[in-house]
Amino acid sequence: MCLAVPSKIVSIDDGGIAQIDVLGVRRDCSVRLTPNAKPGDYVLVHAGFAIQVVEEQEADETLRLLQEMSDRELAEITGQQGADAPAGEPAAAPAAAR
């Protein structure tokens, strides 16, 4: 979960919320921790916050790595569909833990 996802900033509103493009999906993220970020920049995004402005090349490389990961990991990291799907949760875990 300590992986940040590279995203391109599309726009930033007056409240410091940016609209970003992550793997083709539009999301919101806060730029409070990267006050110098501007539209067109690539940023590493973690838990809904941009944490670092990066070069486009770094963004491409990390995205490629992400795309090689499983759908579940990707969904967890990007918060896209599936992150809250009970299907991915092993129902037997509590029983096994006893």
Partner: peptide
Amino acid sequence: TFGDMIRVPGSSTTLGA
């Protein structure tokens, strides 16, 4: 919470359960 916390077993149950 974040997704991966849901499945982690505590002493007798999980947040998912």
